[in-house]
C-alpha cells in the first residue's frame, strides 16, 4: 500500500468495476468520457470515491484536467503526501450510493460524448 503502483491499481480496479471491463483493458491514456463511456455523473461519483479513499478534497477547478486515467493517477501522486498511503484501508475507490450495493458504481447506461452539466 502507498506505493505509486497501488494508487494506479486502486484507480484502475475501480474503473474496471464501474465500466465492467477487465483491468488490463484500461490504459492510462483512456479518457473517462470518450474511451470508457462514463458520463458526467459517473465521473463525479468516481471522484467522490477517490476523495474518500485518499482523504482529500478535489476542488471543482481541478476537474477539467482530470479527464484521463493517467491524469487522475498523476494528480493523486501529487496530492497524496510523500510516502503517505491512502487512508482507506479498503481498496474501495468507488462511491457508495445509498441505493446501490456497497462499493459498486454501475454507470447508468454509459454514454459517449456527454459533458459536465446539470439541469438542476
Amino acid at each position: 500500500m502507498g506505493t505509486p503502483a497501488s494508487i494506479q491499481e486502486m484507480v484502475i480496479n475501480a474503473l474496471a468495476v464501474a465500466t465492467k471491463r477487465e483491468p488490463a483493458s484500461i490504459a492510462l491514456t483512456h479518457a473517462f468520457r470518450d474511451d470508457l463511456g462514463l458520463n458526467s455523473l459517473d465521473t463525479i461519483e468516481l471522484m467522490y470515491g477517490v476523495e474518500e479513499a485518499f482523504d482529500l478534497m478535489i476542488p471543482d477547478a481541478d476537474l477539467p484536467k482530470l479527464v484521463t486515467v493517467g491524469a487522475l493517477i498523476q494528480y493523486l501522486h501529487e496530492r497524496v503526501s510523500p510516502g503517505g498511503s491512502p487512508v482507506s484501508t479498503s481498496k474501495q475507490v468507488l462511491a457508495k450510493p445509498a441505493t446501490k450495493p456497497e462499493g459498486v458504481i454501475r454507470p447508468t447506461t454509459p454514454r459517449v460524448n456527454t459533458k459536465k452539466r446539470s439541469r438542476a
Binding site: 458526467s40 455523473l41 447508468t108 456527454t114 446539470s118 439541469r119
Partner: peptide
C-alpha cells in the same frame, strides 16, 4: 433520458 443531465 437521464436523472440529472438534460439532452444536450
Amino acid at each position: 433520458y437521464h436523472m440529472v443531465i438534460p439532452k444536450e
